[in-house]
Simulated scan of single mutants.
Amino acid sequence: MTATDGRVWFVTGASRGLGRAIAEAALAAGHRVVAASRTKGTLGDEHPGRLVHIPLDVTSRDAVFDAVERAAAVFGGLDVVVNNAGVMLYGMVEEATEEQIRAHFDVNFFGAVWVAQAVLPHLKGGGRLLQVTSMGSGGGMASVGFYGAGKAALDALSEALAMEVERFGVHVTNLQMGGYATELFTSGTTTTTPDPAYRELRTELEEMWGDDAGPAPETAAPVVLRVAALADPPRRLVVGSASFDMVRELARMRAEEYTRWEDLSRQAPG
């Protein structure tokens, strides 16, 4: 894949944040883009003949399959799919309602599954499926546990999917994104009703995270384009320098804990 070969990209959640940044970068590189999102947003129309917007709510499996068929028909196929649509459920596990939890997973997990199922027939023979997960999908964090759980489920499923479809020439990569200023924590967030019992913990978390929203998503888009261009891309990639350091440190701490309790683990024969 080169910068001018005009591959066809299908990007979900393309109206804002990371999805929009990736769509714009792909267009700037000479590719064609089908941008899917619930609302069109402000993604420009300055690419006549190379950018098409399709309304899509990924929580509807039927709507996803219909949108993918329409997307494939626009430019005669699909080459790169960025499974990016996502939301945030912010709050402690005890606080979340059943409705909030199911709505969250309908977008972040099931919606991504519907997209993957729908696009696979169009990617066989050399296509790329880029699954947007999270650098935090390897473990849980207080107050964003449901977000991490959904991304962890997508991570695991996508690794299985990669094994299943590699024989058909489809490359699947989990993009374990770091923290970017994507509006996820603003317009993309549903918040639980706070339980006063967690007030102290909430304050500690707010102080730990601070006010920095992170770098602009446009800074991550070039990495995504490079992954899509690799002949043999990784199955998982942490996207973000600071996030890479954090993931590596968490992996080290987890390995130390396993080792500390190795004797107890080995008391069971399984």
Rank of each mutant, 00 (worst) to 15 (best):
G136Q: 03
F109I: 14
G169D: 10
N174Y: 11
G179M: 07
A103L: 03
V132Y: 06
V172K: 02
A156R: 13
L130T: 07
G148K: 05
L120H: 09
G145S: 12
M177I: 14
M135A: 14
E159N: 07
V113R: 09
F105C: 02
R128I: 15
A103V: 08
F185Q: 06
M135V: 09
D106R: 04
V119T: 09
L161C: 06
V165G: 05
L130V: 11
G125I: 13
F168A: 13
G111R: 14
L129M: 13
L120M: 14
G148H: 08
G139Q: 09
H104V: 14
A153S: 13
S187R: 13
F146E: 04
F110G: 01
K151W: 13
T182M: 05
W114H: 15
L130K: 02
K151D: 08
A112V: 14
V172A: 05
V113H: 07
F168W: 15
A112L: 14
L154W: 13
G178W: 02
V132F: 05
T182A: 01
M163G: 11
G140K: 00
A156E: 05
F185V: 08
A162R: 03
A181P: 14
F185W: 09
V132W: 06
Q117E: 13
A142Y: 07
Q176L: 14
A156K: 09
M135N: 06
G125Y: 11
L175K: 00
S137Q: 10
A156I: 00
G148Q: 05
G126K: 10
F185L: 08
F168R: 08
G150D: 04
S134T: 08
F168I: 11
L175Q: 02
G127H: 09
L161P: 02
A160N: 06
G169P: 07
L161Y: 09
G145N: 02
F105Y: 15
F110P: 00
T182S: 06
V113T: 12
A152I: 09
W114I: 11
M135S: 12
L175N: 03
L154Q: 08
G148E: 03
N108A: 02
A152E: 03
H171W: 06
K124Y: 10
S143N: 04
V170A: 04
M135G: 13
V107F: 11
L130Y: 07
M141P: 11
V119R: 05
H104K: 06
H104A: 01
L130A: 04
S187K: 13
G127N: 07
G140T: 08
G150N: 04
L175F: 07
L123F: 15
V107E: 02
G138C: 04
L161G: 01
S158P: 00
M135I: 03
W114A: 13
T173V: 06
R102W: 04
L129G: 04
S187I: 15
S137V: 08
